[in-house]
Design a protein around this nucleic acid. Structure first.
Length: 428
DNA sequence: TCTGGGGTCCTAGGACCC
DNA sequence: TCTGGGGTCCTAGGACCC
């Protein structure tokens, strides 16, 4: 088995580039794409990045700058982006079948297995770049290295330094050249090193990527844990992270939104929660899954430090895992009743569905002895109250057990088995 | 005045089991 | 009343990613 060679293909300024494909006059125009409610910038063109606008910067903070420099702002169009993303993936599959779709605008490719068809990795990278540009209009950069982390790093170089012309294969570098490039880049740019870790590393004197390559992975494990150790090996060219060609089943589905205007009433919140639940349930059915529990959360505006703050969530285990919207909404409403507190101005509400696919140990039996499991007292109490109040066993006291008993249950799931749920009053 | 949405993994600690 | 090792499961919180 040869040493692996990974490529990371990443669309430049993806959302912005998508908009430009359909409005070529926007080429070279400084522009941003805004998040929901037009709250903050989730994509920036190169011109805007050059002005120092950070990812996620709130729109109201960059408005003045926008006026001065003529920055155009667009609301996001995720349907369009998803479609463009699929086109890019389809093209990448023409180059290799070993592909991991990492995000809406990034894919990892295993390319050492297809190099015989190309003059060099760089030639392959240029081929990918050109075909995507020709067929979709989107600009990409390609980074290549012996591990996924190195491919990411190479992609960073390809994006940031124009002499690479969009394609960087680290293996073409001599040791001293690699040393130089790694010394050039701050440690916080490394995939897996965020704000906090970067700070801690800097305190230790590890400031650049090169510094991190110099320290011993074992020592880093002691200080930071196994993730950092793996990362160190990856940077040294020892591949620890495999290509995930088949996406593992989702463990949770989230549906949440910030409110355009703050809301105060239970009615408004329940309407929002019902909508989110219904959206989440749709996604759930799309992937043929069922939820074993549903989480509801509500919160005030955390940025308004002078306002009274409140954030609460509740996990509601379901007696029978389900994908039924009405059942889920019913449970959600009961959850909301538990956590709602009047007198606050709410900014955000949301729903999390916890899927059973990845929780083989979840056992939905209502007859589990709750005392036999580590079940928190307050949750037990909440479940009790809800069941008493509504006279129905909608929530189960324990969610643990063996895989076997769950499988028995799920095998028995029939369209009619949830009928009684639908007869429950919907509380909104 | 105005600050997104959707995910994953790891760790520590409590509660329980034999 | 105190004593042990080995293990599972769950939750909460922290950190990261795009």
């Amino acid at each position: 088995m040869s040493q692996p060679l990974f490529a990371l293909v990443d669309v430049n300024n993806f959302y912005v580039s998508c908009e430009r494909v359909f409005a070529p006059k926007l080429e070279k125009v400084p522009m941003v794409v805004l998040s929901n409610n037009d709250g903050c910038a989730v994509a920036r063109s190169a011109e805007v990045k050059a002005l120092g606008v950070k990812m996620g910067a709130p729109w109201f903070q960059i408005k003045d700058l926008a006026k001065i420099h003529g920055i155009q702002a667009y609301s996001s169009n995720y349907t369009l982006y998803a479609d463009m993303s699929q086109r890019v993936v389809d093209i990448l599959k023409q180059f290799t079948s070993q592909l991991e779709v990492y995000s809406i605008d990034e894919s990892f490719l295993r390319i050492d297995t297809v190099l015989q068809h190309h003059a060099s990795p760089t030639a392959l990278g240029l081929g990918i770049k050109e075909r995507i540009k020709d067929w979709t209009g989107l600009p990409v950069c390609v980074g290549m290295g012996s591990s996924k982390t190195l491919a990411k790093f190479a992609n960073h170089l390809a994006k940031k330094y124009s002499q690479w012309q969009g394609v960087c294969d680290l293996n073409t570098l001599s040791k001293s050249e690699l040393h130089q490039w790694m010394s050039e880049v701050e440690v916080g740019e490394v995939w897996g090193i965020g704000h906090k870790l970067a700070k801690r590393l800097q305190v230790m004197g590890v400031k650049t990527v090169w510094d991190l390559v110099q320290v011993s992975p074992q020592a880093m494990r002691l200080h930071f844990g196994v993730v950092m150790e793996r990362l160190c090996y990856e940077l040294r060219g020892v591949s620890c992270l495999e290509l995930e060609e088949v996406a593992p089943p989702k463990q949770q589905i989230i549906a949440s939104r910030s409110f355009g205007k703050l809301v105060t009433s239970f009615e408004d919140l329940s309407e929002s929660i019902a909508t989110h639940t219904s959206r989440a349930a749709e996604k759930l059915r799309l992937q043929n899954s069922v939820a074993g529990a549903i989480t509801i959360f509500i919160q005030t505006n955390r940025f308004m430090s002078r306002e009274p703050q409140y954030a609460q969530s509740i996990v509601l285990p379901l007696v029978t895992p389900t994908d039924d919207t009405l059942v889920l909404i019913t449970a959600a409403m009961k959850g909301l009743e538990k956590i709602f507190k009047g007198g606050f101005r709410y900014k955000k509400a949301g729903v999390v569905l916890n899927l059973i696919a990845d929780k083989p140990n979840l056992q939905p039996s209502l007859f589990d002895d709750p005392k036999s499991r580590g079940q928190s007292a307050h949750l037990m109490k909440a479940i009790d109250e809800i069941n008493t109040k509504f006279g129905q066993s909608i929530l189960k006291p324990a969610a643990t057990g063996t895989k076997k008993s769950w499988e028995m249950r799920s095998g028995n799931r029939s369209p009619n088995s949830t009928t009684h749920w639908n007869q429950l009053p919907i509380a909104y």
